[in-house]
């Protein structure tokens, strides 16, 4: 077993994952440096989410290794991985899954409270982050009363509040319109850079990937250097079936 390079905070080697037999990742290796923003690109179904789940310890790869700060994630038990996720990692879903019974600041303060932080300190930190993400005015609203973009920002605040070492964002802007998308991404990347948080950002559009320091492309579960898909030319068979039928 080879020890990972020192400057990589997170390091994966030859990950193989199958979901009930259907291959999701076939031998993906990558290293993530400390403090960088890494975009994982590729079209839908190329294994981005699975890769992020493997890296964050939610999913154990069938083959391959994941190392976090020279600690093997792939050999940890579920409780250790759970503690790792709680203490070191942040996670942003595609759709903002907030706890519907809690209001915005309680949702954002939840990870801190789960870590055992006091209520007052958690509230202060949560309100600070909500303010920084321009949603300080809806700190007392429940999720159902918020707009989708506001909910997603609450989810981002929830991921940022405990100051994680690595933040995983699985297409965090997919359900948003373009104006919201750019704003949310900019706030996310700015916050990450100012706090030195490593970000792994799954995305399928090139604009989002442009904000990152580096892009890793996946295609059909393999790592590729560039995604070369055949150009979307004219619809297939259109000429043959036009007027002559």
């Amino acid at each position: 077993m080879v020890a990972p390079p020192d400057n990589d905070v997170l390091w994966a080697r030859a990950l193989h994952v199958k979901h009930n037999g259907s291959p999701a990742l076939c031998g993906v290796s990558l290293g993530i440096r400390e403090g960088e923003i890494l975009a994982v690109g590729g079209p839908r179904g190329s294994g981005k989410t699975t890769l992020l789940q493997c890296l964050s310890g939610q999913l154990l790869p069938q083959q391959g290794e994941v190392w976090f700060n020279s600690a093997p994630v792939h050999t940890m038990g579920p409780l250790t991985r759970e503690r790792l996720r709680r203490d070191r990692f942040g996670w942003i879903d595609t759709a903002p899954v907030l706890v519907p019974e809690l209001n915005a600041w309680e949702n954002a303060a939840l990870p801190l409270m789960l870590r055992g932080c006091g209520r007052r300190a958690a509230k202060t930190a949560a309100l600070e982050w909500l303010e920084r993400l321009d949603i300080g005015h809806c700190a007392r609203k429940r999720p159902h009363a918020l707009l989708q973009a506001e909910r997603q920002r609450v989810a981002i605040a929830r991921a940022l509040v405990p100051a994680p070492k690595v933040l995983f964002a699985d297409e965090p802007t997919a359900p948003l319109h373009r104006a919201d998308r750019a704003h949310v991404l900019r706030t996310l990347t700015a916050a990450a850079r100012s706090h030195g948080i490593t970000v792994v950002l799954a995305t399928h559009d090139a604009d989002t990937a442009a904000l990152a320091d580096r892009t890793v492309s996946l295609l059909d579960g393999r790592r590729v250097n560039t995604v070369h898909l055949p150009p979307a030319a004219e619809a297939e068979g259109r000429a043959a079936c036009s007027l002559s039928v």
Binding site: Q58, E82, R83, L84, R85, R86, D87, F89, W91, D93, V97, L98, V99, P100, L110, P111, L114, R158
Partner: peptide, 16 residues
Amino acid sequence: ADTTAALLRLGAPTTV
């Protein structure tokens, strides 16, 4: 179930 899954992804201990 959805909310519980999201909490677990956050690393909420099952004991909580």
